[in-house]
């Protein structure tokens, strides 16, 4: 058996996980600074220069706190649920291509961990598994607020998972592949539109799908204005009301890592990933992902929260039909071969 690609993959995955964790830590700092900026405040600026050490201080605080298990909790499930959430969060990033193959020490190294032919579906599968951490945590807490949070999360994730998946079908039709590497290659071509040379990003050929994906992704990651499972002002943090210390921090980590992973996937699927002017590379991916992350924070600082029934109505009555229409139109275009897409 050839061990080398396996080891390289594992090494790359390890590096990726650490980068994600670091990015997550600074995402919390960035979010607090940005929200403070939106709200005419200063934000954390005491720990280190510009408050840059704040994430570390937070981590130390959370880890050193007592881990409380409520008396009427379902003990085993309660202890496992946050780990589940945390473990599943970074898995989606494994299929993101971070660049073309490079040569390190005379060996060809692919800048992705795995390239399976169902990568996009794999991302959806991992996302749909991620909800278990929330459901089980909410159920096991033995708290009615948590239970309500879990119930909301169940319905929300199933509905928006559908929209998320269907919004991608247009891309699958255009590329004829579910592999992110293939999708990226298609986008690296040039789109000539009336004499204008544009990058062949799916943002341009699938704008509706992009909007749908964006909305569904916000809902999928439980972020404002779709943060119903953890609505502080209604459910008092919902499913993780009863969690404390490092188990609480696992949920926190999972939420932010999910945001980053979804941003990376969105950048790869719709904005051409590493493709960009001048020199292609992972920095373009980072810039694009940052745009999405900024958008997340902007939403949170601006919008009120949806109500549960409105949330479901939006998914089933607006987004889902739009996604289906998008699929139909894309299919017809592909069938009749309009344009050279």
């Amino acid at each position: 058996m050839d061990w080398e690609p396996l080891i390289v993959s594992y090494l790359f995955g390890f590096v990726l996980l650490n980068v994600l964790l670091l990015a997550m830590a600074y995402m919390t700092w960035l979010e607090r600074r940005l929200v403070a900026f939106f709200q005419d405040r200063i934000g954390p600026n005491r720990t280190g220069p510009f408050g840059l050490l704040q994430p570390i201080a937070d981590a130390v605080k959370l880890i050193s706190k007592e881990d409380i298990v409520p008396a009427n909790a379902d003990r085993l499930v309660f202890l496992v649920a946050p780990l589940l959430s945390f473990v599943l969060a970074p898995l989606g990033a494994l299929v993101v291509p971070f660049g073309d193959a490079v040569t390190v020490f005379g060996r060809q190294v692919n800048l992705y961990v795995i390239d399976i032919n169902v990568a996009a579906l794999y991302f959806l599968a991992v996302g749909s598994m991620g909800v278990y951490g929330i459901i089980l945590g909410g159920y096991a807490s033995g708290n009615r607020y948590s239970l309500l949070g879990a119930l909301r999360s169940t319905a929300q994730v199933i509905s928006y998972e559908l929209v998320l998946g269907l919004s991608l079908v247009g891309i699958f039709i255009l590329t004829g592949s579910l592999s992110l590497v293939d999708i990226l290659r298609v986008q690296q071509r040039t789109l000539v539109l009336g004499g204008l040379e544009l990058p062949n990003w799916f943002l341009l050929s699938q704008p509706l799908a992009f909007v749908l994906f964006l909305i569904a992704a916000v809902a999928e990651t439980n972020r404002a204005p779709f943060d119903l499972p953890e609505a502080e002002t209604e459910l008092i943090a919902g499913y993780f009301t009863e969690y404390s210390g490092f188990r609480f921090s696992f949920y926190f980590l999972a939420e932010y890592i999910n945001m980053i992973v979804v941003s990376l996937i969105a950048a790869t699927l719709f904005l051409g990933g590493i493709d960009g002017p001048f020199v292609d590379g992972v920095w373009w991916l980072a810039v694009k992902a940052f745009i999405f992350l900024f958008f997340y924070v902007w939403l949170r600082a601006t919008l009120p929260r949806f109500r549960y029934d409105q949330l479901m109505g939006l998914a089933w009555k607006v987004l889902l039909p739009l996604a289906l229409i998008n699929i139909g139109v894309t299919g017809l275009v592909r069938l009749w071969g309009i344009g050279a897409l």
């Binding site: 929200v35 709200q39 404002a224 204005p225 002002t233 949170r300 600082a301 009120p304 929260r305």
Partner: peptide, 16 residues
């Protein structure tokens, strides 16, 4: 009121 409904920023502006 806005904070209850989920609009975070308004409360900061009004308190300012």
């Amino acid at each position: 009121h806005a904070l209850d409904i989920g609009a975070l920023s308004v409360s900061l502006y009004t308190f300012r």
